[in-house]
Computed example of a mutant assay.
Amino acid sequence: MLLGCAAASREAAKTAEGAHFVEGLVSLDGRGFEGATVHAYLASSFSGGKEPEPAATAPSAQSGRFELQLPEGSYFITAGAEGKFAYFGRNPVKTGSNSRGISLPLVPKSEMAAQSVPEGDEGVWGRVLHDGKAVEKVVVMAHLRADTGFRGQPYAMSAPTGPDGSYALKLEPGSYFVTAKKRASGLETGPLASGDLFGVLPSLPLEISKGISIKDDIHLIE
């Protein structure tokens, strides 16, 4: 009871000063992961262009727990470690509402590669994986902005992946946020539900240059 009162008092004091706590867990293979860096970005900064500077960062503790102190607002929460990446599937997070119990399961961060292509053939391609295995019937989407949490119609969509998980998405030179979804229901649209798979390319945003095609794999989480 005393601990609960202390936490409530701390939260009230910080909120009164204009700061709020965002808390959660970074994990790997179902266990807390120590040493990841958690980033909070203002959602409004994900409206296109180059990757913004984080509003705040924090390390994950030995238990995998993390705590960010932020001004009131709406934020995108991600985490990174050597060769690993995590993205909160319900981004953006609003302080004071769904800012507790944020789960950040780490997935592999594939090494991105660029290759020269004729003008007009630019885009992104690779494989869609879950727990290291290829996933078929996944649609990969490119969005021009991310501040709405990838809701609504994407700018471009790939054909569903085949048995080897391969995808290819032709894109004009520019900046894009690339996501992948597979719904257990088999539907192509609608909100994500339990059992659905979701993934994001770690490049936020992905820059497509003239005459260049990017190879990068997308790792899904449930």
Score class of each variant (00 low, 15 high):
residue 93 V to P: 11
residue 126 G to K: 08
residue 167 Y to W: 03
residue 139 V to Q: 03
residue 63 S to V: 00
residue 216 D to V: 14
residue 179 T to I: 04
residue 183 R to V: 04
residue 102 I to N: 03
residue 108 P to N: 03
residue 97 S to A: 14
residue 94 K to L: 12
residue 182 K to A: 01
residue 158 S to K: 01
residue 190 G to L: 10
residue 174 G to W: 06
residue 140 V to N: 05
residue 33 F to Q: 04
residue 110 S to Q: 06
residue 136 E to S: 15
residue 200 V to H: 10
residue 46 F to A: 12
residue 166 S to Q: 14
residue 172 E to I: 05
residue 222 E to M: 10
residue 140 V to D: 03
residue 174 G to C: 04
residue 169 L to N: 03
residue 53 E to Y: 08
residue 180 A to E: 05
residue 117 V to D: 05
residue 23 E to K: 13
residue 135 V to P: 05
residue 20 H to N: 11
residue 195 G to P: 02
residue 105 P to C: 00
residue 7 A to M: 09
residue 122 E to C: 08
residue 144 L to P: 02
residue 29 D to N: 15
residue 161 T to S: 05
residue 36 A to Q: 07
residue 37 T to E: 14
residue 68 L to P: 09
residue 216 D to C: 13
residue 45 S to H: 11
residue 193 A to H: 14
residue 12 A to K: 13
residue 85 F to P: 10
residue 82 E to V: 11
residue 174 G to N: 08
residue 192 L to C: 07
residue 12 A to T: 13
residue 60 S to N: 04
residue 56 A to G: 05
residue 72 E to R: 13
residue 69 Q to W: 00
residue 159 A to T: 01
residue 78 T to G: 09
residue 47 S to Q: 09
residue 184 A to F: 08
residue 139 V to R: 09
residue 151 R to I: 11
residue 42 L to P: 12
residue 210 K to W: 02
residue 150 F to K: 03
residue 207 E to V: 14
residue 66 F to Y: 14
residue 105 P to E: 00
residue 65 R to D: 13
residue 157 M to L: 14
residue 88 F to N: 11
residue 129 L to T: 08
residue 38 V to L: 03
residue 181 K to N: 12
residue 42 L to K: 15
residue 23 E to Y: 03
residue 9 S to W: 08
residue 3 L to W: 04
residue 5 C to F: 10
residue 207 E to T: 14
residue 109 K to Q: 15
residue 81 A to G: 10
residue 141 M to Q: 14
residue 85 F to D: 07
residue 8 A to L: 13
residue 71 P to R: 12
residue 63 S to P: 02
residue 215 K to V: 10
residue 104 L to I: 03
residue 19 A to N: 12
residue 51 E to K: 13
residue 66 F to P: 11
residue 193 A to S: 15
residue 173 P to I: 01
residue 196 D to I: 01
residue 164 D to F: 00
residue 27 S to W: 06
residue 216 D to R: 15
residue 18 G to M: 00
residue 90 R to W: 06
residue 164 D to M: 02
residue 17 E to L: 15
residue 24 G to Y: 06
residue 120 G to K: 05
residue 9 S to T: 10
residue 84 K to Y: 12
residue 128 V to S: 09
residue 58 A to K: 11
residue 151 R to G: 12
residue 219 H to Y: 15
residue 86 A to Q: 07
residue 9 S to L: 12
residue 81 A to H: 12
residue 137 K to A: 13
residue 147 D to K: 11
residue 201 L to Y: 02
residue 38 V to C: 05
residue 35 G to M: 02
residue 170 K to I: 00
residue 122 E to D: 10
residue 130 H to K: 09
residue 161 T to K: 01
residue 218 I to W: 09
residue 199 G to W: 02
residue 4 G to E: 12
residue 102 I to D: 01
residue 161 T to N: 01
residue 70 L to H: 09
residue 46 F to K: 12
residue 10 R to L: 15
residue 67 E to C: 13
residue 80 G to Y: 00
residue 130 H to I: 00
residue 159 A to V: 00
residue 159 A to G: 02
residue 102 I to M: 01
residue 96 G to Q: 06
residue 15 T to L: 01
residue 23 E to G: 07
residue 156 A to N: 06
